[in-house]
């Protein structure tokens, strides 16, 4: 009796230890960044795991730089545009790929998947030429274009899978009611596809928000930069000083919107990611 109770206790303890390890592994870096950002520059290199004094001077410092505020605005502009364009194209493409029978449908799907497999570096120079040719260098529109290229395959695949599951008769009922394909998409399918759209939209947003390589390559001046590049280029008073405080403050600042978004869409994401696992 007691031994059984003991095993149960050990099993429970083991479970929570495991949870603690996972939590520590996942959250500690972010936690340490938050702490660091709240330290005055003098205490930066003393190791401590608790907030001793609330010092917001780092935050004041980065927000007083107009280029950083501008970078946040650029990031928002680029990310929201990417999400909007990717969802619009994704929805319409998924209707064609998921609902209309035509020759070569599978081939198109595989090509779309294939495109997403290229590493960013491989297409960097080619894309650079494209952006120069389109006269989009040092312009947020260039970033929107290049991010959309990498976001669309995923968006189209997820939305197509989701679209395929919507019952055929629903579309036919709409046709009988006199709906055109566009009306069917916007007024019958769209309201049913929110979970999938929240998931893909959020992932597209995160990808665009965090992207660094293209943002570094395709922008030149401070007022066109996005946040990840802006953070990387924060420099100290001299070549030998790395301003950890402001960098951490900036990192925390740009992570918060993502956390908030994930919190808001948490439920939808789960139902979107598991859509297709079970009927319903």
């Amino acid at each position: 009796m007691t031994s059984r109770r003991l095993t149960k206790l050990v099993a429970r303890l083991g479970f929570w230890v495991l949870v603690a390890v996972v939590l520590l592994y996942a959250v500690f870096p972010f936690y340490y960044a938050v702490i660091t950002s709240l330290k005055p520059s003098g205490e930066l290199f003393t190791v401590s795991y608790w907030v001793d004094s609330l010092d917001v001077s780092n935050y004041v410092a980065i927000f007083s730089q107009s280029s950083f505020v501008r970078a946040i605005f650029n990031s928002l502009l680029v990310s929201i545009s990417v999400v909007f364009i990717a969802l619009l194209l994704g929805i319409t493409a998924s209707y064609a790929l998921g609902r209309v029978r035509f020759r070569g449908r599978t081939t198109v799907m595989l090509v779309i998947l294939g495109v997403s497999m290229f590493p960013q570096v491989a297409v960097l120079s080619g894309l650079f030429e494209v952006i120069r040719a389109l006269n989009l260098y040092n312009n947020p529109a260039g970033l929107i274009l290049s991010y959309t290229i990498f976001t669309l395959p995923f968006t189209v695949w997820v939305l197509t899978t989701f679209m395929k599951q919507l019952p055929q008769e629903l579309e036919e009922a709409a046709i009988m009611d006199g709906a055109t394909p566009w009306v069917t998409i916007t007024r019958v399918f769209l309201p049913l596809m929110w979970p999938a759209m929240a998931t893909t939209g959020l992932l597209a947003f995160i990808a665009a928000w965090n992207e660094f390589l293209f943002a570094l390559t395709f922008t030149l001046s401070d007022d066109q930069r996005t946040v990840p590049v802006a953070i990387a280029l924060i420099s100290g008073g001299s070549q030998h000083e790395l301003p950890w405080g402001p960098i951490m403050a900036a990192s925390v600042t740009v992570t918060v919107p993502l956390v908030v978004l994930v919190m808001i869409f948490q439920k939808r994401i789960v139902s979107g990611l598991t859509a297709g696992a079970v009927k319903g």
């Binding site: 019952p167 008769e169 036919e172 009922a173 046709i175 009988m176 009611d177 006199g178 019958v188 049913l192």
Partner: peptide, 18 residues
Amino acid sequence: PRERGVGMVFQSYALYPH
């Protein structure tokens, strides 16, 4: 279909769930 003046009841009903 909309110009034929026909209405249809489907096997699965196919009501708009939202």
